[in-house]
């Protein structure tokens, strides 16, 4: 799973049916220390994450289908948790 920051909300009336009623957020991948970790991407929210929250994101489809069921269809990234705190040992930094 990835660490990311919620930096935006995506709103649109015309979308694939599987997105009906789902919240779509714009995320920026982050290092544990807050540094950037790549380009922004889009994910469906399952935990009522808000702007600026640091979140845990499942970015691979099979897991998403296990959570949302077979009708998940074309959803690949899912916010599955809101991170309160990360504690890690700098010495382990590779």
């Amino acid at each position: 799973m990835r660490i990311a920051r919620v930096i935006g909300t995506v709103v649109g009336a015309a979308h694939h049916p599987t997105y009906d009623g789902r919240k779509v957020l714009l995320l920026k991948p982050e290092q544990p220390d807050g540094g950037s970790a790549g380009n922004a991407f889009v994910a469906v929210d399952q935990v009522q994450a808000g702007m600026g929250d640091r979140v845990l994101v499942l970015v691979e489809g099979t897991g998403v289908r296990q959570i949302l069921g077979a009708d998940a269809g074309p959803i690949r990234s899912l916010i599955v948790g809101i991170i309160d705190h990360i504690e890690y040992d700098d010495a382990q930094r590779t």
Partner: peptide, 13 residues
């Protein structure tokens, strides 16, 4: 696959 058209994108970077 394109799965949605964005009418409004609110971003706080």
């Amino acid at each position: 696959a394109i799965v949605g058209i964005v009418d409004d994108l609110e971003v706080q970077v």
